[in-house]
Each structure stands twice: as C-alpha cells, then as structure tokens.
C-alpha cells in the first residue's frame, strides 16, 4: 500500500531522515514511536509530500508518488491525514468541514455530500454537533471531526501524526476509540503516537525510530516485552515508567 525506499530528508544542513525503508501492507496498522525530534512527523509528511523528500522513492498503491500537480492532488485525496493540532477550518461548521473534501475536490453535489458527512459525523459520535463551529467544540470533538473530514474522501490509507498529543487526558480515549474502530474495519493506518497502550493493543507492527533511522520494528508483543536493541529498551523504560 505504502512503500518507502531509501528515504532521506535534509533541512539545510540538518539530516533528519537517514535512509528509511518501510512497507505498509493493505489493512495493516503501523505505529511509529520514538523520542522527540527523531523524525517521525517528517517521515509521515513525506508520505503525502507535505515535505519534499531529499532522496529516495515512495510508492502509493504500487505507483510512484507524483512530484506535484493534479496527479499529486489525486494521491493526497486517497491518503487521509490527521494532525496533532486538528487544523479544522474555523470558518466552517463541523458538517461543512466534513463536506469540504467531497464538494471541493470531487465536485460531489451538496445534498449527497451532506448525507455522507452526517453519516460520518454519526460514526465518530458527533451527529448532534453538525452545526457547531470548531471553536465551540472540545479538542477531542475537533479531532473526531478532523478524522471524519479525512474519511469523507474515502481514503485508501490514513496517516495520523500524534492525534491525541494536544488533548487533555480525559479526551484522549474518545479519539482512540474512533481510531480502534477504523483499525477493526480494516483501514490501513500509519500512526505516530506516544500512546503505548494504543500501540500495544491495535498495532500489527510497531516501529521504533531514533536519530532519523528505524532502529527496530516488530509485532507489539515483541517490541514492548523483549526488544533487541538497547536504544529501544532505554526509550521504552522511560515512557512506560511515566
């Protein structure tokens, strides 16, 4: 579904990604963990080219990621992205946010888009908030609308960049619950997260990144109980203690 080969990313002199190889299979849930600054967000943002890779190849559903133009727009439409800070459109209601992709990108007629959006808002448990503006919603509600907005494009895969890191602790659960549902339905997901409980429960594969490389990867029961690498052990003992 997503194949990454020899990916490097430099910001000027700063070498952030130093040769990433990763293959995400259809229906797989991959969780990426690792310390701050290790390049997790950068990796995710390279997958839909919000960041321009310096070197390496990326394939989406077998086809090389186009460099730009309409072809890139079309690939992005098939990859849902959920951000740490939601980035809902503040001048649109929750419903309009969810409708925006289908109407603007696909040219779907408004009545059909409205039905689809209401369905998706119901799916994330927010049908009664359809007419609320983002400013009137809690962080957890905003993030659920953002997930619905991404789903409205009927993506082949979803990318999540620390979707719960900006939330108050009591709101984390409702967002993770929606993500678990998605995983259960077979959505291909790449999730950068600090929620080790979520990774352990939902991930098919956990990837530990540090210093711009994948240090170790494997099924969660292996990574969390008997990691091979010292760096993985050190990181996990730090995050699992708190």
């Amino acid at each position: 579904m997503i194949r990454i080969e020899g990916l490097h990313k430099r910001f000027g002199k700063l070498h952030v990604l130093k040769g990433i190889d990763l293959h995400v299979r259809p229906g797989e849930v991959v969780c990426i963990i690792g310390p701050s600054g290790s390049g997790k967000s950068t990796l995710l943002r390279c997958i839909n080219r919000l960041e321009e890779p310096t070197e390496g190849r990326i394939y989406i559903a077998g086809r090389p990621l186009p460099p730009g133009g309409r072809e890139l727009d079309q690939v992005r439409a098939e990859l849902g992205m959920v951000f740490q800070r939601f980035h809902l459109f503040p001048h649109m209601t929750a419903l309009e946010n969810v409708m925006s992709g289908p109407v603007i990108v696909k040219g779907m007629d408004r009545a059909a888009a409205r039905r689809l959006a209401l369905e998706l808002l119901a799916k994330v448990g927010l049908q009664d908030k359809a007419d609320a503006y983002p400013a009137q919603l809690s962080g957890g509600q905003q993030q659920r609308v953002a997930i619905a907005r991404a789903l409205a494009m009927e993506p082949k895969a979803m990318l999540f960049d620390e979707p719960t890191s900006a939330l108050d602790p009591e709101l984390v659960g409702e967002v993770l619950a929606v993500m678990k549902d998605l995983a259960r339905e077979g959505m291909t997901m790449v999730v950068v997260t600090h929620e080790m409980g979520f990774a352990r429960e939902v991930a098919d594969r956990v990837i530990f990144m540090d210093g711009g490389v994948i240090v170790e990867e494997g099924p969660p029961e292996v990574i969390f109980t008997s990691p091979r690498e010292e760096r993985t052990r050190a990181f996990l003992s730090k995050v699992l203690r708190v």
Partner: peptide, 14 residues
C-alpha cells in the same frame, strides 16, 4: 496557521 493550507492540500485540494 500554516496547518490550514496543509490540511486543505492533504484533502487533495489544489
């Protein structure tokens, strides 16, 4: 916020 443009583009908007 730069995220507004990024969110729009990642939905597939030109």
């Amino acid at each position: 916020d730069r995220g507004q443009m990024e969110a729009a583009r990642s939905l597939g908007m030109s």
